[in-house]
Design a binder for these strands. Structure first.
Lengths: 330, 330
DNA sequence: AGGTCATATGTAACCCATTACATAGGAGGA
DNA sequence: TCCTCCTATGTAATGGGTTACATATGACCT
């Protein structure tokens, strides 16, 4: 392996000068710079970042902890983070936690052991207090899901307002019995979306019927199960608001399988506007999150925090929008 | 920051002894070990991995280069890699290349700069020669897609045989005019699958009609465009083999939109058995790859190579299977 | 000429953990 | 008692950069 020493010797200068050339330090004469650069090129020298990282005590790596990359919701968010990181010389490291606290903890070691300069939590399972504590010593930002009582920056949409808008849309289509298929993993968006759903009903003078609120796992099967239940009850709903596209699609599949039509017999709204929403049959009405920007802003806040460790934590909410497609409008 | 020096001082031993305790070196007396461990716990000392990495010249990180994590095909593969890596103390770093040679090259710097111990290519854009060259000095494995003439280990399925089987299935359903929707990105699976498609036709005594072979970008739109074309030509095909599920779904959407039925008017086969295949309406007949195992085996070969740098490169082919659903069978 | 100052470069400490080698101290045998 | 050998521990070199500080060189001024 070629080291800075080898380059220094070959170029007839000291390692300090080579280092200065590598880092574009101004106090190197043009002549020397050229000579050193030529030697670097000749030897095809690549600085060993392990040495640099140790000395600088930084790695220019950001860890992104998400539940599972299988979730199509994440891809554009990660893209936003990557683009901003890349521009600033940072690399992104994506890791699946499977919402397993043990795994999450294992990855947090990378932070504590200085192998990454910061961590983005997409769905923290750690407690509010621990998260706040970690944030005192390390750079942490939350994206989309966040811990309400943790004093740690977060970037998300206003889930309550988004759910309110989605439910209102169903009401405006004449629906009075509207089912909610919520997740059951205890993340903050669930309770916020339920609040928005309830507020829309209340404001429209519709009584909240706990029979119409189902909790199941995120995913296709959860949607199928919930829809099956809704179709089985006495006064079945005429519309469903599902807190994710995949849940909504599971529900639609179930409804169609029963020989019913979407949206005529049952309207369905999803959430996230993942790729499948527009591809499905019928195309899905859904709440679009500004995914790229969620990632972009998250990374901007992260870099700000890395540069100024004293930066105050903040909550940022980005705009969402309701995308109306054929699953709710005949 | 607490260093090994602090621990040594507090415990009244040398740094060497602390290091030995950290690394479970046998030549430490039980008494000393306990004393040091107590101090470590008391100070909540976390070894700085930057120091360790520099000294050991390894980072226990593996870089996985894929085109884009948005592709649902990857998630289980990555899971397989992670599980094996995790068990062996390795972390996985996922990076999107967008098939951009510049980005790919930038990430390869992480390898050359020693920031990762190895690289998995899921879709190399680099040339066969360069790849072979890199593999001489660094640990590299290819997964799913690979460079045919690069002397670098790879793990994949037999794409030719899989496409042969898929096409044969359509033939067995009585189809004689079978369209192929292939990708146009030049990866090896494209030509292999086309070969398999052609072989199945030839063996069944069906003439190959170049009118029935379309090349478009991977993705929903590509599928739609190709289907639109197939529906417009004179002697339209009665079945389509698409080289990815998303392409197939784009095609189905287009077919249904024209008021035709799948599979009655047009049967469709996809590839990969991604989640959407079973969720779609109709559920999609597709070729399932052993995705978890592809990842698992890839990582096993990687670790083998890391441990024994002299290990020979090899090509591993895992079993695939055709999953028949309603998009081809009434 | 002598002094001041800026520029360019070198020397060596430093980041933190690992480990080869050295050594102290105790056990056991002659 | 003296010697050998083993165990436990310490000392210091090491990995590859970065950078504070020291110094050499030369320009410019009086």
């Amino acid at each position: 392996m070629i080291t800075i020493q080898d380059v220094a010797k070959a170029a007839g200068v000291s390692v300090a000068t080579v280092s200065r050339v590598l880092n574009n330090h101004p106090s190197v004469s043009e002549k020397t710079r050229e000579k050193v650069q030529r030697t670097i090129d000749q030897l095809n020298y690549q600085p060993n970042l392990l040495g640099r990282n140790l000395r600088r005590s930084e790695t220019k790596m950001i860890l992104v902890l998400l539940q599972n990359i299988a979730n199509p919701f994440y891809s554009k968010i990660v893209k936003g983070m990557e683009d901003v990181g890349y521009k600033n010389g940072y690399h992104i490291m994506i890791c699946n936690t499977d919402s397993d606290p043990i795994k999450e903890n294992a990855y947090l070691k990378l932070l504590k052991n200085r192998l990454v300069d910061g961590v983005v939590f997409m769905a923290p399972v750690i407690s509010d207090e621990e998260l706040t504590e970690i944030s005192k010593n390390y750079c942490v930002v939350q994206c989309c899901e966040y811990k309400e009582f943790a004093d740690v920056s977060s970037v998300s949409i206003d889930n309550e307002a988004a759910a309110y808008k989605a439910t209102q849309h169903l009401i405006s289509q004449g629906h009075r019995r509207i089912g909610l298929i919520n997740g059951n993993s205890g993340i903050i968006s669930e309770s916020q979306r339920e609040k928005g759903y309830k507020r829309a009903l209340q404001e429209a003078g519709i009584e909240i019927d706990s029979q119409l609120i189902m909790y199941d796992s995120y995913g296709y099967r959860g949607g199928q199960r919930a829809a099956k239940y809704f179709l089985s009850i006495d006064k079945r709903p005429t519309a469903i608001f599902a807190v994710s596209d995949i849940i909504a699609i599971g529900a639609i599949k179930e409804i169609k399988e029963k020989g019913l039509s979407v949206p005529k017999d049952m309207a369905v709204v999803g959430f996230d506007d993942t790729g499948i929403a527009s591809m499905y049959d019928p195309p899905l009405t859904t709440v679009a999150q500004p995914r790229y920007d969620l990632g972009r802003v998250t990374m901007e806040i992260m870099l700000e925090r890395i540069r100024n460790n004293e930066a105050e934590s903040k909550r940022v909410f980005l705009e969402h929008s309701l995308i109306i497609r054929e699953s709710t409008v005949g």
